[in-house]
Structures are given as C-alpha cells and as structure tokens.
Nucleic acid binder design. Sequence first.
DNA 1: ATCTTCCCTGACCGATCGGCCAGTTTTCAA
DNA 2: TTGAAAACTGGCCGATCGGTCAGGGAAGAT
Lengths: 181, 181
Amino acid sequence: MTTTPARERTRHEIVRQAMGLFQDRGFNAVSLQDIASAAGCSKATVLYHFNGKMAVLAAVLEPAAADLAKVVEAAEKLSNDAAQEFAIGKFTELAIHYRGVMDVVQEIIPVIHEIPEIGQLVADGLRLQRFLAGSDGRLELGLAGFAIGGLMGECRHPGEQTDEELRQLCDIGLRRLLRPN
Amino acid sequence: MTTTPARERTRHEIVRQAMGLFQDRGFNAVSLQDIASAAGCSKATVLYHFNGKMAVLAAVLEPAAADLAKVVEAAEKLSNDAAQEFAIGKFTELAIHYRGVMDVVQEIIPVIHEIPEIGQLVADGLRLQRFLAGSDGRLELGLAGFAIGGLMGECRHPGEQTDEELRQLCDIGLRRLLRPN
DNA sequence: ATCTTCCCTGACCGATCGGCCAGTTTTCAA
DNA sequence: TTGAAAACTGGCCGATCGGTCAGGGAAGAT
C-alpha cells in the first residue's frame, strides 16, 4: 500500500516474464501474446502498461542501463588510465549481474538505432567503449569494441558456467585485450 | 550453355541481394518480398528456387560455411599448437573475406539451433573454437568463444574501417586473447 | 450509495508474414 | 514445328503480428 501495489506488481511481473522469454527464445521470437500469457494477463494489459513492444524491451533493459550510466558517469571523473582500470572492473561486474540481458542486447544490435527508447543505453555503451579503450586510437577503440562484443557473446549459454567462472573469464579476457604486457 | 544459365543466374542474384539486405537491415527485418523485389523477380520465384526463407539464409552463408569447413578439416591434421596458429590466421582471413555475413550469423545465434540447414556450419564453428582454444580447458574454450564473438561483432559497421584495419584488429585481438605472452 | 479513478479485458483491426498452387511464358531438344 | 520440361508469376491462403478501443469491474474517496 506504500504505493499503488497493483500497478507496480503487474508491471514488474510483465517485465520479469518478458526478460525470461527474451533470454530463452530471443527478442524477435517473442510476441506480446507470449509475454501476456506468461505474466498471467491479457495482451491488452501489456499494452496498457507499456507503449508497445519496444517499451517492454526498454523496461527489461532499464536496470542494466541505469547501472551502466552510473559507471560511465563515475569514470568520467577519472584519468584515462584510472578510468580504464575502473571500467574493466565495473563492466565485468555488470556483465555478471546482467548476464541474462546481454544476449538480448546483442540480438537487437542490427536495429538498435531504430529504438529511441534505448538511445541513452547505446550512448552510454559508446562512452564505456571509449573508457575501455584507454585512448582515442582507432586500434584501441576497435579492441574495446572487440572486448564488448566478445563479453556479450560469452554471457550467453545460461547454466553452462557459474557466475564465478564467467567473472574469471571476463576479467582475463578484458585484461588480455586491453592491457597487454 | 555450359550449364543452364537462367537457373544459376537467378539463384545467384537472389542470394546476392539477400546478403546485402540481411547486412543492411538484419535477417529478421527482411521479408521474402524484399528479397524478390531487390532481385527483380517475384516472391514465388524465390520460393521456387529455395525451400523457404531459411534456405535463402543457408545459401547466403554457404560460401563462408564451405571455407570454414576446409579450414577446420585442415586443422584436424595438425598438432594442438600448430592448429591453433593455423586457426588464428585462417579465421582472420575468413572474417575479412566474409565480414558482411558475420553479423548476419550473430543476429540469428539465439535461434541458430532451430535451423537445420546450417547445422554443419554450427558444428564447424564449435570445432574452430576448439582449435582456437588450443586445449580443452574450460578457460581456454571460454576465451576462444570470447574471441569468436568479439571478432564477429567487430566485422559489423561496414565502411567504418578498411579491410586492412580490420585484419590488423582481428589479428591483434586473437593473439592477445589466445596467445598471451 | 454514488462517483471517479485506476486496472484490466475481449473483440477487433489492418498489415504483413511465409508459403502454396494453378497456370502462363520461355527455353530447347527432337 | 512441336511438345515437353524448366522458369516464372499473380493471386490467394491461413496465421500471426502489434496495436486500438469501448467498456466492464474493483477500489477508494466523498
């Protein structure tokens, strides 16, 4: 009763079920009816709470987008070198925590620029790439993109590896790519 | 007259246009009608030559799949270490040569196991991952997957980087990830 | 008890999808 | 020249999609 419970409960359940379906079948293979059935409501209810399928996607990605924004904002205040180290650690953490939504993002990359709801997420992703690169060199930026893509791809295969294994893999992968010695 | 020209010409044009459309808009956003219009024929003609949209996809990926099969087959006869070195070089070449279709593959990964037409391509991809890893360790296999995903992601953005830049990027990325020193 | 606001829904819509089929045009060997 | 095979097509189909809308029902305030 603190705040209107019905609204938030339904919205949260829709987002929760949508996230699971997106992970299992991929965004394109999931219909609004699928989401509604899984959430135990009607398709019209989903559209009542969200302005279209893309808005559901944005809501699914919102927590990850918010955390990414925090990371990027914090990195903004650091020197190049410190920001890179910070970004490597934080990005690993984000990847583990939101491993379920990473492949959702990857699937929609071909059309990501046509989804205004997640424009900020895309922009923050580019800023993160810049911090991971450590400089504005084309090679460094390319390697940072390489790292982001590789990490997103490895977050797939749910259950095949534990969080700890994934954390170790991401950490080693990022450091080898971005901080070779 | 050498072989029936009309058949091969039409099939080739369909595949060629489909590849371009898949790159530009993503596989899911391209309809059979789009492919037919671009190829200058009717949708029925596309389906006359190919048993469904997935068969068109398989035809688009076929040259890359064939070359990948050759690479994997050749690597099979080498020692672990030589096979890894061989796979790194050849995979880089394949990525450059088929950079246009790499992101097509990446987009369909969530549903790739439901497409029997490209089962061999998937299997060869896993064998390539094994060779890139250099051993059967979980970490090594994970890093090889990391590398494949990262490389596929970097082949996107057509025109943003030249073939030579991409080649350099892939080579450095793969070596840093898989052969750290 | 009445009213208003919020939550929710069934029914329906236009569009588009992949795919099918009967039939026409083209090709080419006999 | 003719006949059959190959290449091609318009039109249609059922299914499904995302999205709209008018209205039903529950809940709280007055």
